[in-house]
Design a protein around this nucleic acid. Sequence first.
DNA 1: AAAACACTTACAGATGATGAAAGAAACCCG
DNA 2: CGGGTTTCTTTCATCATCTGTAAGTGTTTT
Lengths: 223, 223
Amino acid sequence: MKRIAVVEDDALVREELSAILRRADYEVYEICEFKGAEERLLALSPDLVLLDLNLPGASGFEICRSLKQAGSMPVFVLTSRDQMQDELRALKLGADEYLTKPCRAERLLARLENILKRYEGRRNLLEGEGFLLDRQTYTLYIDDTSVILPKNQGKLLEVFLTRRDQILTKEELCLAVWGTAEFIDENALQVNLTRLKKTMAAVGMRQRIGTVRGEGYRLVISK
Amino acid sequence: MKRIAVVEDDALVREELSAILRRADYEVYEICEFKGAEERLLALSPDLVLLDLNLPGASGFEICRSLKQAGSMPVFVLTSRDQMQDELRALKLGADEYLTKPCRAERLLARLENILKRYEGRRNLLEGEGFLLDRQTYTLYIDDTSVILPKNQGKLLEVFLTRRDQILTKEELCLAVWGTAEFIDENALQVNLTRLKKTMAAVGMRQRIGTVRGEGYRLVISK
DNA sequence: AAAACACTTACAGATGATGAAAGAAACCCG
DNA sequence: CGGGTTTCTTTCATCATCTGTAAGTGTTTT
C-alpha cells in the first residue's frame, strides 16, 4: 500500500483530503504545519507528498525545493491560488504536479496515481547533474544509455554524490568503499579512483574527480 | 537537443505549436494525420509525443494506448475538449500529461520540460506489470529494489516482454539469446530458463514462465 | 511401459572485477 | 635545480560470477 503525506495547515481541508485518499486505499500521514515539515517528511519518506500551498508566504515553495533537492520523492502541489506565476515557479522547483482547488477527487486521484506509477523504481536513484545513479546496483544512466559500474566505483561515485561539494579525505572514501577506515590501503583506493575517472570520462560525464593535494578529492564540473 | 513529435491534423494549430517548440529550442517533427501515426512515431522514436486530440473519435486515445504499451515514450495530450471523462481516460491509458486548450505557451513548455526531465534515463526501460527492465544493462526494478540480471536471463526476459502474450518457441528464444537459431542447444536454453525462473521467484515477480508442451514458453501471471 | 519431452543439479572453463606491487609523474620547498 | 613527498598509472595474479556441458531425474503422452 502506497504511503502519502498530506501537508496542510487548515484542519478542514486536511481531513477532507485524507478521507479521499484513504478511501482510495492509500496510507495517509498528516502533517499539520509547515514548520519543520521537511525533516518530518524526510524521516517519514512517504511514496508521495501532497503539498497544499494556501498561504501567500514562500514557505511552501521552500519545502518543495528542499525536498526535490534532497532526494527523489514526488511532490504534488495543490493550491487555491490560480496564478500562472505560482504554477511555473512550482514546476521549475521540480514539483511533479500542480493543481488548483477546487478539484474533483477523480482528477486528483488519477493524476496522483499517474505520478506514483511514473516513480516506480526511482526511489533508489541518486540524481547528479546530467545523470542518475542507482544506489543498489550502481547502474549509471546518462544520455539514454546505461552502464553498470563495478561495485567499488559505484560506491565511490555514490559517496561523492551524497556529500556534494565537500572535500572527501582518503579515510572517508575508504570507509565508504570497505566499511572501515582501518588498514587503509591507500593504493587500492587510488586504483579504484583512477578506474572511476576512466569510466566517467568514457561515458561522457560532465563531472570529474578533482584532487585537493594533501586533503582529498571532490567532484567538480569539468572545465 | 530534445526531439518532439507533434501529432495534429489541423495545419494552423500544428504550425503554431511547432513554432512555440522550436522557439524553445526543441527539434520538432510534424505528423499530420492520425492514420499510421503509431508506426511513424515508433520509427522516429522522439523524446516526447505531443498528441492533439481534437476529434471526438477514439483514434487519438488508440495512439496513446499503443504507444504506452509498446515502450516508454512520454505522451503529452493536448485537447480542446474539456471533459473530465476524457482526461481520466487519457491518464488511465498512461498519458503523462493532459492539458486543455487554450493554454499559454509558458504552461505548456513548463509541463513539457518537467516530463522530459522525469524521463531522463527512462528511454531504455521496458515496462512489465509491476516491474521495469533496463534493456541495456538488464537491471530489473521491482518494489523499490533493483537487481542486475545476468545477460542471458536478461535477454530472455526482454524477449518475453517485447512479444507479450505470445508463445515463444525454443528456436525464437535461442535466436534472442545467441543471435542464431542454428546449432540450437536446447539444453543450454533450458538451463537459462530455469535460472531466470529462479531469479524471478526470488525477487517476487507476479509473473512466471509457463510451459506450453511441444510449442514453447510464455509469460503468464502467477496463479 | 516405453518414448518423448521437460527439468534440475553439479562441474569446469571463460570472463571480468579486485588489490598488490612496482615504477612513473606531478608537486612542494629549499 | 634537486631531493622528498604525494599522487598516478600499468601490469599481474587471484577471486567471484556467469555460462554451457553433461548426466541424471521428472513428467506427460500414447
